[in-house]
Design a protein around this nucleic acid. Structure first.
Lengths: 332, 332
DNA sequence: ATGAAAGCGCTAACAA
DNA sequence: TTGTTAGCGCTTTCAT
């Protein structure tokens, strides 16, 4: 059992050719005479040679690795993004270097800067404000962002949150709801456009939603926020949550507080995470195409890597997914 | 805006010292005279120099990257593993190279072999049979596996599935259940020990479970399997599922078929994925400590990398989590 | 405490 | 078609 793997030089020696020939052979960048090809093949076979990608990268300057920085792999929304990005990466012979920043702003920048050195390009999901994205441009690596930067022309993808919120609210209105609460998550870059969508739709009917805030985009935060909303003086008959996770937590706690679902209150979220379908009542939501977002981001990055940096911001279309948590309600 | 980043040579020139000095400085491997240190510091600062990890790796032979190969990032069990592994990796200044093999056997080997070349070590979750793990040893990189190999002495971690199943069954027995079904997932390496745990416990009471198989470890597979079990001639009053995902799907379909939950049938799973808690009825399960598994695997790998290859197989303790889906049942 | 020089394993001109 | 050569950016003896 040899300690160190065979190098290109070992192969060259074994096959009686030069290292350049071996290099060209393994990269398939040229044709060879039959005898040489045969020798090469057998030498590589018997030695069990595998070209060292590191050494290759040093010269070519490309690692065929894409950095993917996300806020929390446990959130199914991000999990779906990873899945989508991974699929496209694999198809294009790229590998994913994953960074889970754990929703922490400080780590984020350090981690991403370190990441930048090891990859050809990056896909970043961040909660950093638009104007502090400058340094990312200075990393000299192509970057694709989730959510448009209003300041810098960085390629990015997202789903139309205004429309998504508008559609969902429209649906709730149609179902006869009148007293709205929006349980948001301020730190997210998507939060404000969702609020706008909700309020714009309600205003047309002379209504408006009371806005609350969850401390995190998680079920636990949804649970915590529930009592203040449901037992306060202003009990809503429809609660729109920032995402499905918050909605799921909210539903659990509402039930624990003695409310009957979906009779007493309608609840809806965003993202269309898989588990909303298996909750009871099944959760009405807006599909934001998380997985497609991941695919698209990777596609854009690969394009950028290939020099064709065409489109800037790609907007995906949301789709309303009506399930049991938002039934028809009679006017009160 | 410069095209190419500054190299160690640029810094050396700017600071008026040798490259060796710069190298030692950036690696903190030596002390320096005050004037030199000052020049170095400012040169690095103004040039915005960052050492190229690739070049470094070429020499040191370590990439400070760990490969993590899992079957499906969308399964919360694996997501938790990634989370745990990531946390430990970060603490030790390692980065994760993620490979999602998408439950595909063919890709698996190719992907893992490619992965092996780019990392210092790997953590692998696989469905490959024990005896076809040989080639992994020949990659000449430390590997930690999930689930013990009965043939090769590879470091590995897992949770005691026999005990987990036994405990869960005992609980169901205590609750008064008598007609058991086990809805498994044959392709998993954990499946058979869970069956054994269930049957062993039941045998003590002169009972036995009817064994069914789901085609995948997913909610969809659980849904598909439901009718054959619940509408067949042998209707159970307790269904133990291979994992929570299958259980969640099963519950949804059971309700769709007109059964009342949890009155008509008790359902339980394994893994304690977060969403079981937010289902209704909340799902009884066995916590297999997925996240801890990820942490432990990473810890073991880092140990192996440091040369201390002590323990072989680490077994975590399962913990029963009783919720609403398995209520007390009167003897029929 | 600092520097000169020899590579790590590979690719990319350029020759032959 | 094949070989020679000069590095990629860095670390690491070994001198000084």
């Amino acid at each position: 059992m040899k300690k160190t793997s065979p190098t290109i030089r070992d192969v060259a020696a074994a096959a009686g050719v030069s290292v350049a020939t071996v290099s060209k052979y393994t990269n398939g960048s040229q044709r060879f005479s039959a005898p040489v090809e045969a020798k090469l093949k057998s030498a590589i076979e018997t030695l069990g040679y595998r070209s060292n990608p590191l050494a290759r990268s040093m010269i070519t300057g490309e690692t065929r690795t894409i950095g993917l920085a996300i806020l929390d792999i446990r959130n199914p929304h991000f999990t779906n993004i990873v899945k989508g990005a991974n699929r496209i990466a694999l198809q294009n012979d790229y590998t994913l270097l994953l960074v889970d920043t754990e929703e922490s702003q400080e780590r984020e920048r350090t981690l991403i800067e370190a990441l930048a050195q090891r990859v050809d390009g990056m896909i970043v999901s961040s909660r950093m404000p638009d104007d502090s994205v400058q340094w990312m441009l200075e990393l000299h690596k192509p970057v694709v962002l989730f959510g448009r930067s209003s300041i810098f022309p960085i390629p990015s993808v997202g789903t139309d949150g205004y429309l998504a919120a508008y559609m969902l609210t429209r649906h709730l209105l149609n179902q006869g709801h009148r007293r709205f609460a929006y349980l948001g998550f301020e730190q997210s870059r998507w939060n404000s456009e969702r609020i706008r969508g909700v309020q714009a739709c309600l205003e047309e009917q002379g209504l408006s939603a009371t806005v609350y805030d969850a401390a995190a985009p998680s079920p636990q935060a949804g649970e915590r926020a529930c009592s203040a909303i449901m037992l306060g003086p202003n009990r809503p008959d429809a609660v729109v949550c920032y995402n499905d996770l918050i909605a799921l937590g909210f539903m659990k706690e509402a039930r624990a507080l003695g409310f009957a679902l979906p009779q007493d209150v309608s609840i809806a979220g965003f993202d269309n995470v898989s588990y909303g379908e298996y909750a009871s009542p099944a959760l009405t939501t807006v599909d934001l195409q998380s997985e497609r977002m991941g695919e698209l981001a990777m596609l854009k990055l690969i394009d950028a890597l290939a020099g064709k940096s065409d489109s800037e911001y790609s907007l995906l279309e949301p789709r309303l997914v009506v399930r049991e948590s938002t039934p028809r309600r009679e006017a009160s």
